[in-house]
Amino acid sequence: MMDNLKSTTAFQQSQRKTKPYRRFLRKFLNDWSLNFAAMLAYNLLIALLPIAVAIFGILGLVLKNHPDVQNDVKNKIINSFPDDNSTQTGIKQVVDLAFDQLSKDAGGLVAIGIVLAIFGSSRLFIAIDKCMNIVYRVPERPFIRENVLAIGMLFFFILMIPLMIAASSAPAILLSIIPGGGGRFGTYLAGILVSLLVAFILFEAIYWFIPNKKMSFKTTWCGALVSACTLELFIILFPLYVRKFMGNYAGQIGFAVILLLFFYYFATILILGAQINAFFYDDYQPLFEGLGTYISHMHDEHGANSPKKPLYDKDSELQQ
């Protein structure tokens, strides 16, 4: 155990002499960031329908006497996704399924459906919380606190969706009204800036509230800004990428592949921003090996000679 401690200390001292960007890359990779991004992408995909059910359930209760407004919101949500036939067709199927299912239910079934949808879609933010535990080396929250935070973040996300839709659709509406090249360019630029601001607020909220430690704007703004700028650039370029390299994918399979790829890049951007905050502003250094190897060393350091022996089972230690 002392040998392992000495080797770890020597590794940390050598790491301090390594260039920061190389240490950051090591932390990013050793924390299994790309693997956790794939996990988040899958969670985003399976949370899509429950989120749609929750949104349209709430909107259905609020706007039940205004079907035209509901349809307008549906169309704007569909058009806010990348502008290619496969993705928007798939999103339309999800939205229509969620809306039609709620319209068939009545009375208490609607409320039950909304509650279950809220619980199901909030699992996404629990998955993000688990990723932040690795990035910041912090313990997990108790079950109740974890779920309260996840549901709260879900409602915040639902509130942010109309702002995202308005930010993405406003330039297209104004461009058809404003004459002249200068006015059109200014409108397009303003739309990008507003979209950046909304994305920054979303990432800032995730980086501030989800990690299980005290956070501040000073330690979270940079990652949120990098993530927001990267996401905006990604949203602009992704439709071009889909048309050029994924034109052969069609139908529901194409929708699933394209959407999963979109979510994977989004999740990678989210974890990248968190890693920037943790490394450059909270001074969290990389693990000396990948996460799996690190856990193996921790298992050995705690004297668990048998692979089946729990790390912190003091009773079993006394028996041996």
Rank of each mutant, 00 (worst) to 15 (best):
M1S: 05
M2K: 13
D3R: 03
N4L: 13
T9Q: 13
A10S: 14
F11N: 13
K17T: 09
Y21R: 02
F24E: 07
L25D: 01
L25R: 00
K27C: 05
D31R: 00
N35E: 11
M39H: 06
Y42T: 06
N43H: 06
L45A: 11
I46H: 04
I51A: 11
A54C: 06
A54F: 12
I55W: 04
L59N: 10
G60F: 03
G60T: 01
H66R: 06
P67N: 10
D68P: 01
N71C: 00
K74M: 15
N75Y: 06
I77L: 12
I78N: 03
F81L: 10
D83S: 09
S86D: 14
G90Q: 03
L97A: 15
F99V: 08
D100I: 06
S103N: 14
D105H: 00
G107M: 07
L109W: 15
V110T: 13
G113Q: 07
V115F: 05
L124S: 05
I128D: 09
K130S: 07
C131I: 02
M132G: 13
I134S: 08
V135G: 01
Y136N: 12
Y136L: 10
Y136T: 06
R137P: 08
V138D: 13
P139F: 15
I144M: 12
I151F: 04
I151K: 03
F155S: 05
F156D: 08
F157M: 12
L159I: 09
I161F: 07
P162K: 03
I165M: 15
A167N: 14
S168P: 01
S168E: 05
I173H: 12
I173S: 11
L175C: 04
S176H: 06
P179A: 05
R184Q: 13
F185S: 10
F185C: 01
I192E: 14
L193H: 02
L193R: 05
S195Y: 03
L197F: 11
L197G: 09
F200H: 06
L202C: 11
L202V: 12
L202F: 14
E204N: 01
E204V: 00
I210T: 01
N212E: 07
C222E: 08
L225W: 10
V226G: 05
S227C: 05
T230A: 15
T230Q: 10
E232H: 03
E232M: 04
L233Q: 00
L237Y: 10
F238D: 02
P239G: 07
K244Y: 01
F245I: 02
Y249G: 07
G251S: 02
Q252A: 11
G254C: 08
F255Y: 08
F263Q: 12
Y264H: 05
T268F: 12
I271K: 05
Q275C: 08
D282F: 00
D282E: 15
D283M: 00
Q285N: 08
Q285G: 09
F288I: 02
E289H: 05
E289C: 02
G290Y: 09
G292A: 07
S296N: 15
S296P: 13
E301D: 10
A304Y: 02
N305T: 07
N305P: 00
P307E: 11
K308N: 15
K309S: 09
K314G: 02
S316A: 07
S316P: 06
E317P: 03
Q319C: 01
Q319P: 03
